[in-house]
Amino acid sequence: CHSECLGNCSQPDDPTKCVACRNFYLDGRCVETCPPPYYHFQDWRCVNFSFCQDLHHKCKNSRRQGCHQYVIHNNKCIPECPSGYTMNSSNLLCTPCLGPCPKVCHLLEGEKTIDSVTSAQELRGCTVINGSLIINIRGGNNLAAELEANLGLIEEISGYLKIRRSYALVSLSFFRKLRLIRGETLEIGNYSFYALDNQNLRQLWDWSKHNLTITQGKLFFHYNPKLCLSEIHKMEEVSGTKGRQERNDIALKTNGDQASCENELLKFSYIRTSFDKILLRWEPYWPPDFRDLLGFMLFYKEAPYQNVTEFDGQDACGSNSWTVVDIDPPLRSNDPKSQNHPGWLMRGLKPWTQYAIFVKTLVTFSDERRTYGAKSDIIYVQTDATNPSVPLDPISVSNSSSQIILKWKPPSDPNGNITHYLVFWERQAEDSELFELDYCLKGLKLPSRTWSPPFESEDSQKHNQSEYEDSAGECCSCPKTDSQILKELEESSFRKTFEDYLHNVVFVPRKT
């Protein structure tokens, strides 16, 4: 048989008469490798580009789960590009990614509803959504962080984005990388972005840091009482949809009607710091009717980097990364020049730590249904340095008659930039024990000054392991946590139920 035959053949030295091919099969003959313009397919066939392209389009058009959109890589027609490569849609070739590779997620039936953290986790790592997304989240724990972890990498949506009755959302900033909504599939009414009845939605994105392009379709905003109209108009300008909307697409009466839409800028007039305090004062603000001013709200939190936005980490279910302080308005003076500047002394802060701070007014709604208010920009203030805590785990070892090696770990709280350490030492008198000992005694162990690591005695271990207080009263049991108490109650309830079950099964009433 021919060298490319495997198993047997019907005619000697003829690659077209093989029972099976050793390498690849091409047009009725066995070959060692697939010549151009053919590609290896499933490690035994040679196919042309049209064959591989037909497989790709067949799966793409069917949208069946589990099928493969075949691509070409290293002269092979394979189910998908290997790690580190992405497909070129024009020629199906796998090309190296520039940075992290995109991950295209194809949605069944063309859309997916995100109504819980669990459903959001199914899209973790996706960068391109081939379909439409509907966000409908009523509640949950730590929602802002969970949504950002699972949806934060999405850069492109081919269909539309719909935010509907998501009472738990305060902001859409968890879509931190969303840059493009194509609108290839539109919501009824030709809408590519749809926001309806979101009672706590206050911000779409921080438009000073976020760009969003909507290729096709219109915007729809109705019944978002805490979303200011200025935020919607800003989205029109940034996304390129200005002029597409009709009169009733953006409701003037049901958007922002319960919001404090600040239209003035508060400026800080005085800032002073110490290692654990920050004193702030800002310019006074009074609405047209000074009785509408209820006070100020001061927001602050630790910020290692200057990239904080107002609604980071917030949701309507209680999660809030900001510390909020309510401040009463100052006494009002008739003389504008003698107006008191409101302020606040922030206490209990960490030394040498940068804080993000902003302040906003708290006002009631005027009778004319106009909203007044003022808010400052987010500023960054760093507390002063102070003395560091003591170095940890000092170790001293003498390696000769004239040297001592000293080692330690950095302090747990540096409280500033540590530039150097101060080492103090003092000579001590020799131990009298060394002169009084009889060095001729056998088995004498000389006193040693070398360091030995501390260890816990058996008594201390027994005390720590004991669940009861000892007789001397030195140790006591740790208080039980809520989960331990709940577990004990469940076990007790189970024992009672099981005992009742045994009584009912074992003891049967005697027939009379």
Score class of each variant (00 low, 15 high):
Lys267Asn: 07
Thr371Arg: 10
Glu302Ala: 14
Gly313Lys: 08
Lys253Ile: 14
Ala303Tyr: 02
Ser274Val: 05
Gln199Ser: 04
Glu302Ile: 04
Met235Leu: 13
Asn141Ala: 07
Lys301Asp: 12
Leu201Arg: 00
Cys126Tyr: 04
Ala195Phe: 11
Leu298His: 01
Pro394Lys: 04
Ser401Gln: 13
Leu280Cys: 15
Arg244Glu: 11
Arg244Ser: 08
Leu406Ser: 05
Leu252Cys: 12
His106Met: 07
Trp207Phe: 14
Leu392Ile: 14
Trp352Asp: 14
Arg165Leu: 03
His106Ala: 05
Gln245Phe: 11
Pro388Met: 00
Lys209Thr: 13
Ser401Val: 13
Gly189Phe: 04
Asn141Asp: 07
Ile188Trp: 05
Asn387Asp: 02
Gly125Tyr: 14
Asp292Lys: 01
Gln382Thr: 13
Gln314Glu: 05
Asn387Gly: 09
Asp312Lys: 02
Ser116Asn: 02
Arg281Pro: 00
His210Ile: 11
Thr127Lys: 15
Phe275Leu: 12
Leu331Lys: 11
Tyr160His: 08
Ala374Thr: 02
Ala195Ile: 14
Phe175Gln: 00
Tyr194Lys: 11
Gly256Tyr: 06
Ile114Glu: 00
Trp205Pro: 03
Ser400Asn: 11
Thr361Lys: 02
Asp393Ala: 15
Ile327Pro: 02
Ser116Gly: 07
Leu212Ile: 13
Leu180Thr: 12
Asp312Gln: 04
Tyr191Ala: 12
Ser321Arg: 10
Ser401Tyr: 05
Asp367Pro: 05
Tyr305Lys: 02
Lys103Gln: 13
Gln199Asn: 13
Ile378Cys: 03
Gln339Ile: 07
Ala149Lys: 10
Leu204Phe: 10
Phe268Tyr: 12
Asn198Lys: 00
Thr118Leu: 03
Thr118Asn: 03
Asp335Val: 13
Gln306His: 15
Glu146Leu: 03
Leu266Gly: 01
Glu231His: 08
Trp286Ile: 00
Pro329Phe: 08
Leu108Cys: 03
Lys209Leu: 09
Pro304Glu: 15
Cys105Arg: 00
Lys301Phe: 04
Leu180His: 09
Gln245Asp: 00
Thr113Ile: 05
Ser158Ile: 12
Leu172Lys: 00
Ala195Val: 09
Gln203Leu: 13
Ala316Thr: 14
Leu123Asp: 00
Phe299Trp: 15
Leu143Ser: 03
Phe299His: 11
Ser389Pro: 02
Ser230His: 02
Cys317Phe: 14
Leu186Gln: 04
Ser171Met: 05
Trp352Phe: 14
Thr353Leu: 08
Lys301Thr: 10
Thr383Pro: 00
Leu107Glu: 14
Gln245Ser: 12
Ser398Lys: 01
Ala195Asn: 11
Arg124Pro: 07
Thr215Glu: 15
Arg176Asn: 03
Arg347Val: 09
Ser398Val: 02
Asn320Lys: 04
